[in-house]
Each structure stands twice: as C-alpha cells, then as structure tokens.
Amino acid sequence: MDTATHFAMGFGLAGLAHLDPIVASTPGLMEAVMLGTVIGSQAPDLDGLVRIRGSAAYIRNHRGISHSVPAIFLWTGAIFAFIQLFMPQANWLHLLGWIFFAVCLHVFVDLFNSYGTKGLYPFRDKWIAFNTIFIFDPLIFSAHLLGFMLWASGMHPGKVFLAIYLLIACYYYWRFQVQKRTTELVRQKIGRSGTYTIIPTLSWTHWTFVARTEQIWYVGEVNAGEVIVLDTFKIKSENEIIAAAKESFRVKSFLAFTHHVHVETKERPFGYEVKWIDLRYRSRYQGKSHYMFVAVVYLDYELNILDSFVGWIHRGEEQLNKKLDPDKQLN
C-alpha cells in the first residue's frame, strides 16, 4: 500500500488497541502503543533508503528482505527497544504484541498489489503478489478517515475500528471473487492455455492483464466486463546478444523482480540495444502507448556492455534516449 494508507493503519490499530483492557486502563501504555503501531506500520518501508545506491539496488531490495519473516521480528524488536528506552512500560508484553501486529499488517497488505513482497523469505525466495488491491485504495483509506472522525466525536475507537477492519476483510474477499471472475473472462477471450495475471487499477470496473501462452504474450484490459487485447508479443528464444546483455547487474536486478517480461533487440550504429519491458505497466504519453518499467543495455559489436539503465520511464522513448545517449557512448 501507499505510505499514507500505512500511516492510517498505524493509527487505526492504535484505536483497535482500546479493546485490550490492559492497554486501555494502564496510564501511559496507550501512548506507547500508538507510537509503536504508527512506527511499526512504516518500518518495513525504510528499505526505501537503499535508493541512494541507485535504481537497480532499489528494485532488487525494496519490499524484499525488509518484508521477510526474519525482518518482521527484527523490526518488532528494534521498535520495542526504542520505545522502552524512552517510555518504559511494565506491561511490556502488550506493547510488544501490538507492535508485532502493526509490522505484520504492513507486510500482509503489501502482498495484495501488483508489486508484492518477499513475504515468505527465507522459506520461499520469490516475490509474492496477489494482484487484488491497487496500491492506493480509496475505500480502505476513506474507511480509516471515517473511523478517525467517529473516534474524535466520542465513539469507542476499539469498536469503531473493529467494525472497519471486518468491513475491509469482506472487501478483500469481494475483490478476490471479482478478480477470479475477471480471470475467467480473459481466459475465455484468448482461448488458450497459459498463465494469466489480472492486475487491479484505481477503478473497481477496470483491470489490466498479462497472459502468457506457449508462444505469445497478450497484454490488455477489462472494462466493465469487456475484454480488450491491446498488444501481443511473440516470445523470443535467447540468443548470444541477449545472453551478453543479461550480464549487466541492472538487468539481473530487473529480472529478479519481475517475470512478466518481453525482450527486444535492435541493431544500432554503435552495436546493439537490448530492452526488457515489464508487461504489467503499460501507459500512454502524448497519444502513444509505452511500457514504463524497463531495463535497457547498449552493447558494442563485440558484445561488450557500453551502458545500461533500469527504472521507470513515464514519458516514452524520448525520456529513455536521454538516459542512454549512444553518441555519448561513442565519444
């Protein structure tokens, strides 16, 4: 989820903690729990600081180890120790439990969008993405805002947020069912066996999809039940040019993150351009469609890597050409 929703959930859990009689009746403990749940709801995303090491490091690490099973316990312990240092609590087990709950909830909800996490690492060293909830969901965020208003009006925060989280749980179930029906619609439209990935958007009635059959990638969208195929790509076999480009550390980071990838090769004056595109992220800029998340490698004719790039391109090929200028490589 987005940062704002994680913050809202941190305060929402603090409201829910009023159902814990020890927390509700112990002076100072509620304040400590609120601090713990708010920090815990954000802590796993501190891995975003790895961005200073470059986009490749960020792609490989964001929502990776920081969202793993061992990390849940490490974040919990670190936050608990920090709070105990400045706000020592005799009923420390209750504080520890609510911090743990907040960290777990952060990792759990991040599993449901298209980016996903390595939430089962080290038991499973793969990204898990359930593709059910968009990264920002207006209903979930609005439900929390409503809860805060009811809390401020004098209603019992524990009962308010218990009702809200039960509602959100039902909402998640409903989204799963809609996603399941949408997958069947796409499968029937394409009519071939393969792997079908249905991806949520901000709209409840609009989904995007990526389907891989034995020979073809299909990319499209579903609008109010109508399936539209937007692009098709023939799956290519790897050759020596692609194999050489895959030696780039940026490409390795890209391919470790996504498996919905189509690769293209193009001869250029300086040698070859090899581009991988993540088919999940199709967009339009100035009337032209393009794929925003890419990895690109420039090679000379001897297959030596000249330069590479991995990251998000929001303004099409023009922006990408500014990232990798072949004239600079020839100088």
Rank of each mutant, 00 (worst) to 15 (best):
T5E: 03
M9F: 10
G10I: 04
L19H: 03
P21M: 11
P21C: 09
V23A: 02
L29S: 06
A32C: 13
V33Y: 03
G36Y: 04
I39F: 04
A43E: 03
R51K: 09
S55R: 11
Y58W: 06
R63N: 04
G64K: 00
I65L: 14
A71I: 05
A71W: 02
T76R: 04
G77F: 02
A81C: 07
M87E: 08
Q89H: 12
L93Y: 09
L95F: 00
F100Q: 06
F101I: 11
A102G: 03
F112Y: 08
F112V: 04
S114L: 11
Y115E: 07
G116T: 12
L120T: 11
A129C: 08
A129D: 13
A129G: 10
F130P: 08
T132I: 13
L139N: 11
S142K: 03
G147E: 00
P157R: 02
A163L: 00
L166D: 04
L166R: 07
C170A: 13
Y172K: 09
Y172W: 07
Y173H: 06
W174A: 12
W174D: 15
F176Q: 15
V186I: 11
R187Q: 14
Y196I: 11
T201R: 03
T201L: 06
W207F: 10
W207K: 15
W207Y: 11
T208W: 13
V210Y: 02
T213Y: 02
I216A: 14
I216W: 10
Y218H: 15
E221F: 06
E221Q: 14
V222G: 07
E226G: 04
E226C: 12
K234F: 05
K236M: 15
K236S: 13
S237K: 09
S237V: 07
E240K: 09
E240L: 07
I241A: 07
I241E: 01
A244M: 05
A245S: 09
A245D: 01
K246R: 12
E247Y: 07
F249I: 15
R250T: 09
K252E: 06
L255I: 05
H260Y: 05
K266F: 09
R268D: 13
W276G: 13
R280I: 02
R280A: 07
Y281D: 13
K288T: 14
Y291G: 07
Y291L: 14
A295N: 03
V296L: 02
V297Y: 00
Y298P: 02
I305P: 01
I305T: 05
I305Y: 01
I313E: 12
L320G: 12
N321F: 01
P326W: 00
D327T: 14
D327R: 01
K328P: 04
Q329A: 14
